[in-house]
Amino acid sequence: MRFSKGLASLLGVFLLSGLVLAAAGPPAMAAPKGRVAVVFATGGLGDKSFNDSAMAGLKAAREKLGIEYQYAEPSAIAEYETFLTQFARAGKYDLIVSIGFDQADALKAVSARFPKEKFAIVDMVVDAPNVASYVYKEPERGFVLGMIAAMMTGRAGDPRINKEKVIGVVGGMEIPLIKANVAGYIAGAKYVDPDVKVLVSYVGGWADPARGKELTLAQFDQGADIVWQAAGRSGLGVIKAAQEKNRYAIGADSDQDYLAPENVLTNGMKFVDNTVFQAIQQVLGGKFKAGIHLLGLAENGLGYTRSLVPREIAAEVDKVKAKIVAGKLKVPENIDEVDKWLKDNKK
């Protein structure tokens, strides 16, 4: 028994010394212009993806809009509803935000129970009179990436580029969301160069990097030199393959440059930070609206990172992007529509 207590106190001292270094107190705040509560997805902060990006949006809203925020990091799916209820019961928040699609059940239940509270959910639709759902115009993201890839594959003097005008995309699963991305990608590529060939493969799962890599290597063998991953964790294999064969990969959802700094050409981004910021801004401005808010390039909900994209290509892309933002160019949403769309929208 004596031994165990000694061990415990030793461990305690060890933990203490680590904590003293890591510690930081909550900052003091003046009277806030509004109060926002956020329930993160179970991955928690530090996920280098949705949660961290949402947090950046919250911080921006604190600085620019003067709000005060409160957040919760659930460790289990069953905790979503508890946290949402806690926030709703407090009755002092102008907006309660759910991050991530798996909170839909909990938010549906809680929003019905607290009809006077205002809620928002990112990347999912919850049909309720007091919930604003923020989702993305997926094909627009694909379109921009398709343009970049098509312009790059024709470039000379880059060892990562081959002679063939072939690019590829590896999707996670053949579901409407991914197919919409792929439709945009094909349309974007053929919009800048009708001769470019686009290879499409599906992993059949979101967590299979080995198969993602295999499919990418197969696409490289067929002449592709730039492959976009729209495959979640399976997409890590796409980036790995590009690094090994010294080709280009395109990342998804968040900035994945750090995985292969020499081989990630760009990333198709979902700007969750902007989304959260806008949701807060709308509420503070008295413009809260339940229902679906579709965010695309125009709303700064989607975009791409400069990363390794040459300046002149980025300039070209931004010109077309401006057209989309201005509503002069509408990106097709289904793969079947792409051919007809290309005929109608010659560059």
Binding site: L11, L19, G44, A72, E73, S75, E79, T82, F83, Q86
Partner: peptide, 26 residues
């Protein structure tokens, strides 16, 4: 559940809260 409300109302990060739970278990 107490840890959840510690996180909410005393703004103690989840990590510290998990650590306290770990201490109890230990």
């Amino acid at each position: 559940s107490g840890g959840m409300s510690m996180q909410l109302f005393a703004r103690i990060p989840m990590d510290l809260m998990t650590l306290v739970q770990g201490l109890v278990i230990l």
